[in-house]
Design a protein around this nucleic acid. Structure first.
Lengths: 201, 201
DNA sequence: TTCTGGGGATGACAGATGTCATACCCGGAC
DNA sequence: GTCCGGGTATGACATCTGTCATCCCCAGAA
């Protein structure tokens, strides 16, 4: 029996997926968590073979949880299951050592399939998504540009961003300006939208 | 047997929920659709008793689909199942005649439970959400303010919004200004964020 | 050692944004 | 018949934003 951990914050979805996987002859969902920061402990405690991780979760993202697993329990295979097929997410997930990357609008059958394949050592990635990730190149934003853009996304005004990040207001303007150019946008709102779509935020 | 239609755009989630419901003795999922604009036809064709509708779907929102059902097939009970427990969504859903409103981070058992209860004529609403919806009052935005805010949310600049909505640029500024004040924000970005959180957009 | 890129800052400037007063038209409420 | 709110518009004004040139510091690469 393949021992699976399921990490997903929406109970209804998590329980439904667990039920679905539980119907497979060779799969057993031995642990469920709703927060990213509970993944490693639960994986260790229940000696899981595969961890299915959502990305958007409270506490810690599934991608960060994958990175932790890589360090602490390197034998656990990681399958990322996410709502958003953003190229940046895929890229980061693979960099953190994920073994599979699925989007939730793929057929449910792919889930059990991916679990079995990663255990055989395969990597499972949607080819369309892989192409998109390769086509668009890496995240061009520097750390600070991302920080500033993220702050701007909440609707903060330059002065507030400056205070929050301990920068001068002029520097905030500079970072925002370069971020706007790198995203090909015409103002901060559009820059935020573009960066979100690509998974850079 | 209770005949259920399931409308949800993410296949994996839809199929998992269908499986879960199918395990219930008295429930049968007789139709599944991935788009809001296919709800009415499928409901009619399969003579469903209850329609479970996600809100965010391509083609048409679950709320609008609920309104159509109300008109065309008034006997079909409607259960809205959504990721976002936004008060504005709940309010609009109920105005369109929904019988239940569930959020996906509620336990999965509530789903089958809600299906049975709406068939008995009950309304099913999360009390916390109901309180939030009542506490915050109705959407204060006028139609045009909402239009302009929505256009601004995509990162469009004033001139573009004006062109898209056939308004003068000054008028766009006026609407944006009142929208900003009504949301208690300090600029368009924050106004968009607030409006989104409340489900006004 | 020099070059390069990231982080940080300043000053100047043009253009975009947000606010306000004011005005007109219309339809429904009183 | 008047009042009010929504929709639309203009002009003026004060800020905020976005861009650019230019500077400093530092670490790692060449």
């Amino acid at each position: 029996m393949i021992r699976v951990l399921l990490a997903e914050d929406q109970s209804m979805v998590r329980e439904a997926l667990a039920t679905l996987l539980g119907l497979e002859e060779d799969i057993e969902v031995v642990a469920q968590v709703a927060r990213g920061d509970e993944v490693v402990a639960a994986a260790r405690e229940h000696a899981v073979d595969v961890a299915l991780l959502d990305i958007e979760m409270p506490g810690m993202t599934g991608i960060d949880a994958a990175a932790r697993l890589r360090v602490e329990l390197p034998d656990v295979k990681v399958v990322i299951v996410t709502t958003f097929g953003r190229p940046g997410y895929l890229r980061r997930a693979m960099e953190q050592g994920a073994d599979a990357f699925l989007v939730k609008d793929a057929p449910a059958a792919q889930l059990a399939d991916a679990v079995r394949r990663v255990l055989r050592g395969e990597k499972v990635i949607d080819p369309t998504l892989a192409a998109a990730a390769l086509a668009e190149g890496a995240d061009p934003l520097t750390t600070r540009e991302r920080d500033v853009l993220r702050a701007a996304a909440d609707g903060a005004v330059n002065a507030e961003i400056a205070k929050a990040l301990h920068l001068s207001e002029g520097t905030v303007r500079n970072y925002l300006s370069t971020a706007i150019q790198k995203t090909g946008a015409r103002n901060r709102s559009e820059a935020v939208r573009v960066a979100r779509e690509k998974g850079w935020l």
